[in-house]
Amino acid sequence: MNLWNKLMCYSRRHSPWLFHMNGGSCNGCDIELIASLTPRYDAEQLGVRLEGSPRHADILCITGPVTHNAVNAIKTVYDQVCGPKAVVAIGSCPATTNVFIDSRTLDGPLNRHVPVDVFVPGCPPRPDAIIQGVAKAAEILAERAAKKLPIAPVVMPLVGPGCEGACPCAATTELKNEEVRA
C-alpha cells in the first residue's frame, strides 16, 4: 500500500458521512439516529456527519422493514452512493422485519435488496449502539478501500439496559408456556 492509499484509508475511517434513509420505519430508529448526533451522544466526534445527498455520503443508514414503495428508492439511492460504500441496517426491522413479519405490503428484509455490512439490533437500538455500528462500518469502509473486502455482514451486540422480563416479548412466551402446560 502506498502512502496515498494509507492516507485515504485513514481519512475514510475518520470522517464517514452518513445518508439516512427511511424504508418504512416507525420513526423510532430515525429519532434515535438523530439523537446519536446531538450533544449527549455526539457522534460528530467520530467525524460523522448527516448528509442531505447520497452522492456525498460514504455510509448508508437504512431503517425500517422495507415496504414495497421503498424498494426501488433504496436500490436507486444505493447506486447513487459513490464507492467504496458501506450499509448499516439500523434496528431489528431491516434485519428481520421485526413485529411486522408476514405483512403483505413488505418486501424485506433489507439484505434481499442491497448488501448489508453492519446490523445494529434493537427496537430501536440505543444511540450508543448506533454509534458503535457506524464506527464499525467506518472500519469496514477503510479496509474495503484498501483491499476490496468481500461482504460479510457484522451483527453488533445488543447494548443497553435489559428488559428484565417485563416487556411484551416475555409476556408472549409466558403465555405460550402456560398454554403448553394447560
Binding site: 420505519s25 416507525c26 420513526n27 423510532g28 430508529c29 430515525d30 429519532i31 421485526n98 413485529v99 411486522f100 427496537c123 430501536p124 416487556c167 411484551p168 416479548c169 409476556a171 408472549t172 403465555l175
Partner: peptide, 15 residues
C-alpha cells in the same frame, strides 16, 4: 397480547 406490542410500533414518537 401480541397486538399491544404490534400497535406500539405504529409510531416511534407517540408509542
Amino acid at each position: 397480547i401480541q397486538v399491544i406490542a404490534l400497535m406500539e410500533r405504529v409510531c416511534g414518537i407517540c408509542s
